[in-house]
Every structure is written in C-alpha cells, then in structure tokens.
Amino acid sequence: MNGLAETLAHTLAPGLLYPTAGAILFALGLYGLIRRHHLVLRILALNIMGSGVFMVLLGVAARGEGPPDPVAQALTLTGIVVAVSATAFALALVVHLTRLTGHAVMLPGPPDDDAPVEDISRGEHHADGGPAASDEDRPS
C-alpha cells in the first residue's frame, strides 16, 4: 500500500500529473472530434485537445527544481491566443454554414461530380443553400 501511495503522490506531482492529464484530454478531444457531427461540438473537442496540449506544456514548465520556466508560460499564453482566434474563426464559419444549409454539419466530402460550382470571377452569387446534408453527416 505504501508503494501505491508513493506512486500516487509521485503521479500527482505537477511534473507528471499535468502531462498525463494533458495527454488524456488530447485523446478525449480527438475522440470527440471524430465522433461528434455537430460542428460546434467538434470545435469544442478541438479546444479540449488544445487544453491538453497546454496542460502538458505547463507541466513541462513546472518540472525540475526551482521556479517554473517563464518561457513555457509565455508559450502557453501565445498558444491560447492563437487557439482563441482559430476558434472564433471556426465558429464564424459554422454560423455561416448554418445560415446556408440550416444545419451545423458538414456537407459530404468528395463525391464532387454533382456538387454545385461557383465561380466568383463571374460575379454570380448564390447565397441560397447547396444540397442538404447527407444522412451520414447528420448529427446523431
């Protein structure tokens, strides 16, 4: 039992706890990204993955003796900024897509032969939706 407690304590030390948790978050986020069809959920999943990465980074920063590495913290902050902007952009796209199709899901992929074609150089805009999403991509 002593061994277990020691292991636990060791594990709970920020040097290892954070990276482990980060890795788990990363994996969970990946799972969510794959399994969820609703785009907002997918974006959330990506954010969870991002959080995982940052946790690892912070854990790394806390490793070793002495005060935490300021560089790592700076990196985390920068990373969060990037992640926020990417998320905002993604959400904006999703909103646009939802306006166009009525669903916050992606259109099916490559069966491209009958996909509608737009050519901006001809200056024709069709804001009124493309084909409806297929069953495969509908939120379950």
């Binding site: 990946l30 799972y31 990204l33 794959i34 992929g109 490559p110 069966p111």
Partner: peptide, 19 residues
C-alpha cells in the same frame, strides 16, 4: 473508387487513420 473515397472522408476514418 468513389465509394472508397467516401469512406475515407468519414471523420471516423480520418481519426482512425490519423491514430
């Protein structure tokens, strides 16, 4: 080929292949 590509496009497949 078209069917196969459609399968590859599924997110499940992407995730699986990525892993």
């Amino acid at each position: 080929l078209e069917d196969a590509e459609r399968v590859l496009t599924r997110w499940e497949t992407i995730g699986l292949l990525f892993s």
